[in-house]
Design a protein around this nucleic acid. Structure first.
Lengths: 202, 202
DNA sequence: TTAGCGTCCGACCGATCGGACGCTAAGCTG
DNA sequence: CAGCTTAGCGTCCGATCGGTCGGACGCTAA
């Protein structure tokens, strides 16, 4: 029943590492990045603590690698699903739609990985908080680019306040995550779509 | 340097209990309800673990008492600030305004206590999650009552979808908390006020 | 064939966790 | 005064935390 077959080659080591990270992302999205403990994760994968820690060296490095893996999954499940959509408002709409879908599908078993990570680390300092903040900043920048583009070509009103729109769009998605996780409200997705449609001139 | 004077009367015991809870709320809003540990909290207050635990019996009971205390503070800092405001839209506006102010003033050192608690416990089960969900439900019900009232007397459009409005209002406040905690963005309060004004027919 | 490297394990470390237990000492009641 | 209640303390416990260390094993290059 071991999740990791006991091979020892270098290529299999890379595989082991990715297995650790995939499972680590799942656990961290539910238990939090601090609740992700080395011993439990190792037992979960049928390996020893030291064998697991050998790939990273410290819990903090593991956390940073998990954040990176989660960012990769997010990038693949949200912006990765709208490749080919033309820039500006169509792309902005598609990104938001994929964002809603990502939460509805429950890509991470504990809801939005980064929302949970922000809530956990926003009061701390250090590389982990910086990494989380960086990922959020990148994603918001992607959206801001489309907002500004859509505004500049007239797809959104010329007096659109990009920061204000970003603030409100983000709120809709935070509210969606909140409703899905706390209330298990399956009508929340439709509400989010309605709110987005209104914000983007639906 | 002890935070709790070593008196032994029953009335002072109640005082000790409230000192524990006040500090517990502060710690929990930053470190989380699970990160609130009995030993550290006791050392923080200059008392022993067993002396502290004697007031509650278990960590879970302490967590529930902390949640209750936090709810009391919220009730005093948000709805408690709008007593006397007439029902309907004026009261709804005042509640939202107080809600924004509560986040801007940083009533809890770690941001909104309940937002953090929801993020931490939304995937678990048990009395702690239930207590958090209950507090959020009560607060939303308070707002919903004002939304429905405002709609029925024509202060809001007759076709107002109360659940939809609630969803979007909550999103604005979640986005505000997010911006304040992660970005330390002091312009977020104004953005929240603008968004609320638009939602409530500013 | 063998030396070296990298992966992984088992054992172990000090620290800290939640919690149990018995005790002291002070206030209340008779 | 005696006797009961109880706030709070000191000590101890098993479990678990992150992390270290030596060694076993297999692959690869010489």
């Amino acid at each position: 029943m071991s999740g990791v077959s006991p091979r020892r080659s270098a290529t299999e080591a890379r595989h082991t590492r990715s297995v650790i990270l995939d499972r680590g992302v799942e656990v961290a999205s539910v238990e939090g990045l601090e609740g992700l403990t080395i011993g439990r994760l190792a037992a979960d994968l049928g390996m020893s603590k030291s064998g697991l820690l050998g790939h990273f060296g410290s819990k903090e490095v593991l956390q940073l690698a998990v954040i990176d893996t989660a960012a990769g999954i997010f990038g693949q499940e949200v912006p990765g699903r709208v490749t080919g959509v033309e820039s500006g408002l169509p792309r902005l709409r598609a990104l938001c739609s994929a964002w809603v879908s990502y939460l509805e599908r429950g890509v991470f078993p504990g809801g939005c990985f980064f929302t949970a990570a922000v809530a956990e680390f926003d009061d701390r300092e250090g590389p982990v908080r910086d990494a989380i903040a960086g990922m959020v900043a990148v994603w918001r920048r992607d959206l801001m680019i489309q907002i500004r583009l859509a505004t500049s070509v007239g797809e959104l009103p010329a007096d659109t306040d990009a920061d204000q729109l970003m603030f409100e769009l983000y709120g809709v998605l935070l509210s969606l995550n909140h409703s899905l996780r706390l209330d298990r409200d399956n009508k929340a997705g439709d509400r989010a779509r309605r709110a987005i449609a209104r914000l983007l001139g639906g």
